Amino acid sequence: MNRHDKLTARNFQTAQEEAKLTSFDENPPDAYRLAFTDTDFLVRPELRPVRMQLELLKPELIQQELDIQSTVVIFGSARIADRESAQAAVDAARTANDSVALQRAERRLLMSGFYEEARRFAQLVTEHTKDHPHPLYVVTGGGPGIMEAGNRGAHEAGGRSIGLNIVLPHEQRPNQYITPELCFRFHYFGLRKMHFLIRSVALAAFPGGYGTLDELFETLTLIQTGKCRRRPILLFGRDFWSRLIDFDLLLDTGMISPGDEQLFHYVETADEAWALLVKEYEIDQPGASTGTAQEFPI
C-alpha cells in the first residue's frame, strides 16, 4: 500500500473479512459465533424486524447496482399453460377417450391464449425499450404460468427480466427464463408486493386467483388512497374481469367513488396494451421519460 492509498484506507476490517477469520473455528458454541454469521440466531422470532429489513434491502441494492430504474409488472395465474402444452393435453384426453379430462383440457387450451399474450406483451416491452434512456424491465412473481410467460417473452427479446419468488408450503420453483442475477426469493408476502411496486411504471393483470387478486387490489388501493403515484393498470380480458368483479355494483352502492373505475383499463391483446403505454409515456418520442423510481418514489 503506497502513501496515497493510506489516506483513504479502511480503519476497520469489513464484516466479510471478520467472517473469514472466524470460519476456521471448529464448532464454536452458539454464543461465541458472530451474530451475523449465526443463522440460528437470525431466524429467532425476536429478529423478525431485522429479517424484514434484510428482505427489503437485498433486492433493492442489487437492482440499484444493476441500474434498474423502471419496470413493468405482470401478474397472473400459475395455472395457465402455454398453447403447445395445452393442445398436447387436449390431444391426449381425446386419445384416451376421457370426457372429463377433455373438458378440463379444452378449458386450459382456451385460457392458454392469455399465456401467449403475456409472452407477447413482455417481448414488446423489452424490444422497444432496450435502447431507451430508461429501459423497462419485466417483473413477475417468478413462477410458472403467466409469470413464466412474462419472463419468457423478455428472454426471447434478448433482455433481462426479474422474478420475485416466494417460499410456499408446496415449493414454487423459479421458471427457467428469469435472468439469474435478478431471481429473488422472499419469505414475506408484504415485502415481495412492495418490490413489485417500487419501480413499476405499469402493471398488467392477467386472469388469476387469490394471489393475483391480492396483488391487483393492493395496487388499486395504494393508488386510490394516494399512497403511490397513478400508473397504468391493464386488465387483460374484459369478459373475465367484468364477470369476476362487479365494479358497477361498487359504484352504485357508493363503495367506491366516481372516477375510481377509471384507475384501470381493459385490454385484450399485447399490442393494445403496448399502444396504451406508448401513449401514456410517449415512449417513441426522442428523450421521452418513463418516470423512474428516483423521480416517483413509492
Rank of each mutant, 00 (worst) to 15 (best):
37 T>I: 09
62 I>S: 06
74 I>D: 08
56 L>Y: 15
110 L>Y: 09
65 E>C: 06
94 R>M: 10
70 S>H: 11
36 F>Q: 06
85 S>W: 10
92 A>F: 00
100 V>E: 14
47 L>S: 00
95 T>E: 11
80 I>Y: 12
60 E>G: 07
87 Q>Y: 10
107 R>W: 11
47 L>F: 04
41 F>D: 06
39 T>G: 04
116 E>R: 03
43 V>C: 01
56 L>Q: 09
73 V>D: 10
109 L>W: 08
77 S>T: 14
102 L>V: 05
57 L>M: 13
65 E>Q: 11
93 A>W: 02
98 D>R: 06
104 R>I: 10
42 L>H: 11
86 A>N: 05
50 V>T: 02
116 E>D: 02
105 A>Y: 10
62 I>Q: 11
65 E>R: 14
100 V>A: 12
84 E>D: 13
63 Q>A: 12
54 L>W: 10
113 G>Y: 03
98 D>Y: 10
107 R>L: 14
56 L>G: 00
45 P>A: 05
58 K>R: 12
41 F>K: 07
106 E>C: 08
78 A>I: 14
71 T>K: 12
94 R>P: 00
52 M>V: 09
50 V>M: 01
83 R>Y: 14
51 R>P: 02
42 L>E: 07
114 F>N: 06
106 E>W: 08
65 E>P: 00
111 M>S: 10
67 D>H: 14
110 L>E: 09
116 E>V: 02
63 Q>P: 05
46 E>K: 04
43 V>Q: 03
34 L>F: 11
59 P>F: 14
74 I>R: 09
76 G>T: 15
74 I>C: 07
58 K>A: 12
114 F>H: 08
35 A>D: 13
79 R>D: 11
70 S>F: 08
110 L>Q: 12
48 R>Q: 04
115 Y>T: 01
70 S>K: 11
87 Q>E: 13
44 R>C: 03
78 A>H: 15
56 L>S: 10
72 V>G: 04
70 S>Q: 13
48 R>N: 00
85 S>A: 15
102 L>D: 09
94 R>D: 03
103 Q>N: 12
78 A>G: 08
103 Q>D: 13
112 S>L: 05
53 Q>W: 12
